[in-house]
Design a protein around this nucleic acid. Structure first.
Lengths: 245, 245
DNA sequence: ACGTGTGAAAATATTCACAGCT
DNA sequence: AGCTGTGAATATTTTCACACGT
């Protein structure tokens, strides 16, 4: 309920790990994956603008706020349809609504949080979680010392009850924040229970059937990528190899 | 966390947000960005294999462990040089070492953690953080109730001392886990202090000069991307328009 | 035989540049 | 004038397929 635009969100586009989105009908406009990822960024910028009372934006300024160039932004938005006005720009409210629709954010989605370690608790505390249509509807762990306790108005449930939990709460997305050693098992159970969208914080590659969509958030990988670039910047390759880019 | 090889790592390829790594010399082998991101994944798989005592792997099985296809893996590895043996595969130890070198993980890197909210604490607790050459060398906040307290053997320092902290601890990478409203200011101070690699968990686009490298981890964006695909899977477009078919 | 390394082809993504609407 | 929407050009990434070394 803070008046602040953003909650506290921490996410990363996964390093890869995406199942084939399945063959679909030859739709008039298939939105490219890269564009989908950016829509979320545009949305945040738009919400910010909306709160400052701005009614219209040009692709140029919205692009600046989103950290991309304007041609890319226009191309991205063109996949949604024609919502801009030439010579004027985009109507902030209208465009916000269109992106919301496109991302499927008009409907509330029940999220299950699996694993209540350090990270799980931090995630549970994220205000921004609830802020845009995502509602933590179930919290699950296996530790007897934790199961049965209350957190954010929810009773922590045992992993064994996963099937019922998923069915009853109509879970759409599961957030996996368990140790790497448990992640594949948890994932298998989620899939068996019918979950088809998983956000994985465990440092493991999850094996899932093709209809299940997994995204991975991997801190170690991010640091290593920064390390690589840092290395390049500091002049010498590493003592033996020099890499350009 | 578990006694498992990996600590607890949570990272995501940022949705974009990368500064131009600056023009550099025309090096013989420029490693593509997409490849760099995957090297971290291969590395994890290799370390796992090494621990099970496996001496060599084929591109086929390493690729399976990393969740990519083998042609991609071979192409990726070819940028590092020729470390495989035809008819045999890759030497696990050798390849591990080469990737480590390439990513610059042979040298210890001091990381500063800025912001000790829920997420900051969770990040501080990550074992996997230290596990591969990244060492939290400084923890910074502005809250008077927190500054001066001890955490993981470090005294929490005030943001005002950032310049000295960066210089003294020789900070290579900063992890920003502050509220969105404070992120740009923190970022500016980091840049002024000389930090050139930033991992940003705040839901904001950070503006930085071109020599600074920013990666963003954005939970809300990840959920929204999953939401988009979930929507497609569930058949109807968005609930207001019956467009499909 | 087996499996790497890699040119060449195909698929994606980004950027350019401008016609066309307001 | 100003700014969108988009074909065409360019760049990047993925995949194919096979020659070549062991």
């Amino acid at each position: 309920m803070s008046a602040q635009p953003e909650g506290l969100n921490a996410v990363g586009t996964s390093t890869d790990q995406r199942s084939a989105p399945a063959a679909d009908q030859a739709e008039p406009r298939a939105i490219p994956e890269a564009t989908v990822a950016r829509l979320a960024v545009y949305l945040r910028a738009l919400v910010g603008l909306g709160e400052t009372g701005t009614a219209t934006v040009s692709s140029e300024s919205l692009a600046a706020a989103a950290g991309v160039n304007s041609a890319k932004l226009r191309k991205d938005l063109s996949y949604l349809g024609s919502y801009g006005v030439r010579g004027v720009g985009y109507d902030v409210a209208l465009l916000t609504e269109q992106i919301n629709k496109t991302l499927g954010l008009h409907q509330d989605r029940a999220v299950a949080l699996i694993g209540l370690g350090h990270l799980g608790r931090a995630l549970a505390g994220y205000a921004g979680f609830a802020s845009r249509g995502f509602r933590i509807a179930a919290i699950v762990d296996t530790d007897p010392a934790i199961v049965g306790t209350e957190l954010r108005g929810l009773t922590v449930q045992h992993l064994n009850r996963l099937d019922q939990i998923v069915a009853e709460a109509n879970i759409a997305i599961a957030v996996v924040a368990v140790p790497a050693s448990a992640a594949q098992d948890v994932c298998d159970r989620l899939v068996a229970a019918g979950v088809t969208s998983i956000l994985n914080f465990a440092p493991t590659v999850l094996n899932v059937p093709p209809h299940v969509d997994v995204r991975k958030v991997d801190l170690a990988a991010e640091l290593q990528i920064l390390s690589f670039h840092d290395n390049r910047k500091s002049g010498r390759g590493d003592g033996s190899l020099a890499v350009s880019r």
